[in-house]
Computed example of a mutant assay.
Amino acid sequence: MFELKTFAPDILYAFTYHNARPGTYPYHSHAFLEMSIMLSGTSDYTIEGVTTRITAGQVLLFNPGVHHQETQLPGTESTQLHIGFRQIALPGVKPDTLPFADSVVALGDQADAFFACAKRIAVESTNNGAFGHQLLVQATVVELLCLLMRALPDNRVAADRAVTTTQAEPSVDQQALVASATYYLEAHYQEAVTLTDLAADLHVSAAHLSRTFKAVRGESPMSYLTALRMKKATQILKETDLPINQVATSVGYQDPFYFSRLFKQHYGEPPSTVQGRS
């Protein structure tokens, strides 16, 4: 087993996300490590082109460059703990990489202790303003990772592999910030979200967030939010016969006329022509 005397990861984010609405998230990868822990429910994950159903009690580990995509199926919901981290250095393993060959990790005998630890992180993730919050999250994530490494003998070990980057690629900090912003928007698109609200929740300035988001995704956070709302609205229009004003409210717009104008600008046709279309 690896020596962990200097094991001190930098925690980029740790938060829970409850999803009860069907939909598919963008296919993406990160320049840092990400762990997604299914606390309850179920959802499908497509990892490097292969789709697997993930249920409560399973954990996913995405090394840098591993492409993945989540789909919440109709009639299902899930609660997950997402943790982004970096500055991992293990002997014989590329920096910021853990030696698991598969993204779906088998926990074996460590499962009970691992999930007890994960639930403590989930609770602490809601205490942003509490004394010692960041230090406590850091310490508990280290504990979680140690339990994960104890499960390594139950898993296939990956061969060492290089992670290539170019100067044009966004930094790890930039990708982490945009990942957090994206998760926030996916969770709160039904609410009256402003750029100022989003930046405050992520503890950065609005200008910095807007600049970083555009550098990574090629669009502003509010443009992403509008496109997300339009996508959700289209799904509702096709699957229900709700009045346009209720569709507008369900995706975060209190003014149905403004919603209809945005929808037509986005798709070139009013929402009324989309309703009922298969």
Rank of each mutant, 00 (worst) to 15 (best):
194 T>N: 07
218 G>R: 11
155 N>T: 01
50 V>M: 13
52 T>W: 11
225 L>C: 06
38 M>W: 06
209 L>P: 03
168 A>F: 06
274 V>T: 05
12 L>D: 06
210 S>E: 04
207 A>K: 07
83 I>P: 02
144 L>T: 01
253 Y>W: 08
159 A>G: 10
13 Y>W: 10
232 K>L: 07
147 L>A: 05
74 P>G: 00
140 T>A: 12
12 L>E: 00
130 A>E: 15
249 T>G: 11
150 R>P: 00
158 A>P: 00
8 A>E: 14
134 Q>D: 14
198 L>M: 05
204 V>K: 05
83 I>C: 02
269 E>M: 15
23 G>S: 00
220 S>W: 00
211 R>A: 06
115 F>R: 01
146 C>E: 11
198 L>Q: 03
75 G>T: 03
166 T>A: 10
264 K>G: 05
158 A>L: 13
79 T>F: 06
244 I>F: 06
223 S>V: 14
238 K>Y: 13
270 P>I: 05
1 M>R: 02
107 L>T: 09
128 N>P: 03
133 H>V: 14
245 N>F: 12
52 T>C: 12
161 R>G: 10
13 Y>C: 09
208 H>V: 15
125 S>T: 00
158 A>E: 05
183 Y>S: 09
226 T>V: 08
148 L>S: 00
238 K>M: 15
77 E>I: 12
2 F>P: 04
218 G>M: 10
278 S>H: 09
10 D>M: 12
39 L>R: 01
105 V>Q: 06
260 S>C: 14
263 F>I: 08
203 H>C: 12
179 A>F: 13
86 R>S: 03
194 T>V: 08
200 A>G: 15
56 A>I: 11
99 P>D: 05
99 P>L: 02
108 G>W: 12
238 K>S: 14
31 A>I: 12
16 T>W: 00
269 E>F: 14
63 N>E: 05
247 V>N: 03
186 E>W: 10
96 D>L: 01
102 D>K: 09
120 R>Y: 08
110 Q>I: 07
268 G>K: 07
274 V>R: 03
106 A>W: 07
119 K>F: 14
10 D>Y: 11
128 N>H: 15
235 Q>E: 14
53 R>P: 07
113 A>F: 10
136 L>D: 11
167 Q>W: 12
110 Q>K: 09
22 P>F: 09
140 T>Q: 12
75 G>L: 13
19 N>H: 12
182 T>V: 12
49 G>C: 06
195 L>Y: 04
83 I>D: 03
